[in-house]
Amino acid sequence: MFIGTEQLTHTYMPGTPFATKALHDISFNFKQGDFALIIGPSGSGKSTLIQHLNGLLKPTSGQVVFEGKNIGSDKQELLRLRKRIGLVFQMPEEQFFSETVFDEVAFAPRNQGFDENEVENKVIEALEKTGLDPNELRMRHPFQLSAGQKRLVAIAAVLSLNPEVLILDEPTVALDTAYRKNLFDLLTGLNHKEKLTIIISTHHLDEAAALADRVLVLKQGELAMFGPAVEVFGRREELYSLGLALPPVTEIMHGLAEKGMPVSTSVYTLQEARREINKVKRRDRS
């Protein structure tokens, strides 16, 4: 097992009248190099699950496994673990606290005890990985940046430690379509070229569905579905009954199929849809 959980259960405020079971008996396993999606209605436990994967939250029972080993609760171990498994929170730019972009990205490497030369290299490399220009931006105040640039700085701050796994909680909230596309291009690049394992939670499947190797669906803290994207997105009625949606293009293909057009419904991008419709229509005409 590369990264996943075994019978993970998490209860918030256990032993108090406010005890709330947020996750119940979750077992799954993402492979190294996966582009994985975690989806589910609001309150289904996505953020709680994500925060277990780099040891920010500790299981009430069960375990979180990384490279076949229980990640445990030793502080030094967890510090080392968080270098390898980076987590980008929802709306991460709301947590900026530094005066310059450089200091913001340098926070984690400094915290891990690297000397200033190494810190400098790591900051520049991380900014470059996200497509930002270090020379132009390093001395700027983070709040002077555009919404899309801020989001990238927050991701650079996590990439500065060269993690092997990058987890992002709702990474595209409040970004416009151009920035959203840019962000997914970046994640695709990190996944393909840098071989990073990417795990994201999202409500918006426009871009994410086509990239996903594996999809995990949560329902009220329980594992509702887990499997390859084609399999999970094939279970349309179940997804609907959870209040979830299919990728928009897939909805159109289902519409066509229902009207008797023999198209595949395992289609997640505009270009795939275009090819599929052309294929079927050409066959019609010939």
Binding site: D176, T177, P248, L270
Partner: peptide
């Protein structure tokens, strides 16, 4: 402007290019 149309508008435009 860097904006998008609805999925239906985007797909229809691609299909019109293919002379639908």
């Amino acid at each position: 402007l860097g904006l998008q149309g609805t999925t239906a508008v985007e797909l229809a435009a691609l299909l019109r290019q293919d002379s639908f």
